[in-house]
Design a protein around this nucleic acid. Structure first.
Lengths: 336, 336
DNA sequence: AGAATATAGTTAAACGCTTAACTATTTGCT
DNA sequence: AGCAAATAGTTAAGCGTTTAACTATATTCT
């Protein structure tokens, strides 16, 4: 593999000159540039990134950190969408993505992850930080690595979806359809900031409509479809009069629909079920699921753009990406 | 950020000794080890990977390459599963994953990708290489980067799923249920090695059963659910007597089920529909989809293990991971 | 004309680590 | 006792870049 020296020798100049030409730093003639470029081409020279990293401190690598906590992250379609958004942006800016999935617990953060952020291998970091147990972003920020957080945080740079607003839209939709006997399927409180906010959104709309929020029956799952099945069973057995169930993610909603059929209740005629996230399976479900699209792809894009602007010395404001309601066949008005 | 020098000074030894202690290379006393380790701990020292990479040529990074070609890879749930398998293995071996998604066309491979594999940043590479247009693995192999290919290839180290066997199981299942008027939904021939093999598997079983394969009607999609809808429409309109449709991926199968309902045919009573891949939406579908699980997660795990064994000088044989039939509600025997 | 400035290029140090080559001491063997 | 071999540690070169500091011309201005 040829190095700068080889190119310099071939072009009859010093390595410093080659470096200048390649980085477009002033003071060289057109002629020198040509000689250098020809040598580069003939040798098939490509800079060694490790050398460059050591010397300049820049690696052109951004770490994308998906803490591996509750729900194995690879099962979460949102993660993919976020990653897709980040990928698009990083690719166009010629950055590489280093995917890190540290094991996180309340007591400890994966030492291998700490090693990574201390290694000098990373120019910046985008972290999903949405769970209260322990922050994966803080150790990076402490080490002065430019960091953008996707999620709820007090740190400076963050991007998040408007969970409050999205949940309000969803609840408004349910109320507009005439439902008043509503159940909720969510995850245990304070395990996920986003879902907390969605609950708050539902509460606000409920109270604006004069309903007593604490009267609304709630059942708990763990994000999975099967947990949605169980939660719906409990809910429908204890409250047979429910006409609508709001599930705070799509997979649990799909489980709820299945359970409803099991119990002889047809969706949406006998029961409205709505979800949240607009995963791809939501549109493939039968009936297709009414849900909220939080534009996870955009979340990833915005986070990447924010990171690149920080690289350039900016101090961007945090961004809240609006969510919007996707009305499909699983919700219907209470009537007849 | 402290460096080796700082540790050496604090421990009162040379940098070489510190390096030896940290890499467990012989000749040092217990007492020296302790002094060094104490200094390491007190300073919070962590090796700079760029320095190490430059000096040793090892980075502890493996590139995972998902060429961005036909179907945006992030939409493909299999990719996630493969990635999950790779992640598990790499994490346990203390390797980091650099995710690369080069744009690939028949004429050219993303120059940025070429730069990456020539950069000295990468110890090894795992590539999904399943499409005939252009190989993303060959440039890496040419540059002597240890490379494992997931897919069909003539290169030395590869892992793939047993598409032939999986498709045979699927076709046998259909025949055992008594179906003889069968349609197939796939993608255009020679755009994907795996799907080619699945077709061969179906053909073999058909011919063993004395059927004429060329009589089986085929319709084409592009992997997506909506393309499955269209393909099923064509198939069912042209051949109303079909009692079973084999779709060569799950998303198209889900589309086919939807289209069948549209046309008033109930699955599985009036029509059996089966898929391939066992994506998560398959179990959530209504009815749950009979499909073939190709154990994509295992594919990723096996590929990683293979790569690590190559690092250690082994010359592993290629592996074919068996697939198995997952029987669910979308297939039923032809009767009554 | 002569000083000041701009241009073109070179030299060499620095980044942080690994490791071959070396020195010095201790141990084992005949 | 005397030599070889094993052990413990050091020195310094080298990995491939970038870049500050420098030299040597050429150009501009008064």
């Amino acid at each position: 593999m040829p190095n700068l020296q080889d190119v310099a020798k071939k072009a009859g100049v010093s390595t410093a000159t080659v470096s200048k030409v390649l980085s477009n730093t002033p003071y060289f003639t057109e002629e020198t540039r040509d000689r250098v470029m020809i040598a580069v081409r003939e040798l098939g020279y490509m800079p060694n990134l490790a050398g460059r990293a050591l010397s300049s401190g820049k690696t052109n690598i951004v770490a994308v950190v998906f803490p591996y906590i509750y729900d194995p992250i690879f099962k979460d379609p949102l993660v993919m969408q976020i990653l897709e958004g980040i990928e698009a942006q990083c690719t166009s800016e010629k950055y590489n993505i280093l995917l890190s999935t540290p094991r996180v617990s309340a007591e400890e953060i994966d030492p291998h992850y700490i090693q990574l952020i201390q290694s000098g291998y990373i120019d910046g970091l985008i972290a999903i930080d949405n769970v209260p147990i322990n922050s994966v972003a803080v150790p990076a920020i402490e080490r002065n690595i430019p960091t953008v957080i996707i999620g709820y945080t007090d740190e400076q740079y963050s991007v998040r979806s408007d969970d409050l607003g999205g949940a309000k839209l969803l609840m408004q939709h349910i109320l507009e359809l005439g439902h008043r006997n509503i159940g909720i399927i969510t995850v245990p409180q304070d395990t996920n900031f986003a879902l907390n906010q969605r609950m708050v959104g539902i509460q606000q709309v409920a109270e604006e409509a004069g309903m007593c929020f604490t009267d609304i029956p709630v059942s708990y799952g763990n994000y999975s479809t099967s947990s949605g099945v169980k939660a719906a069973k409990i809910l429908l057995e204890d409250h047979p009069n429910l006409t609508a169930i709001i599930c705070l993610n799509d997979r649990m909603a799909i489980g709820a629909i299945q359970q409803a059929y099991q119990m002889g209740r047809h969706v949406p005629d006998d029961l409205t079920v709505v979800g949240y996230d607009n995963i791809s399976a939501a549109s493939m479900a039968l009936p297709p699921l009414t849900t909220v699209d939080q534009h996870a792809l955009k979340l990833g894009q915005v986070a990447s753009k924010m990171l690149f602007s920080i690289f350039e010395g900016a101090m961007p404001d945090s961004v809240v990406v609006p969510a919007n309601l996707v009305t499909r066949g699983s919700s219907a008005s209470l009537n007849t």
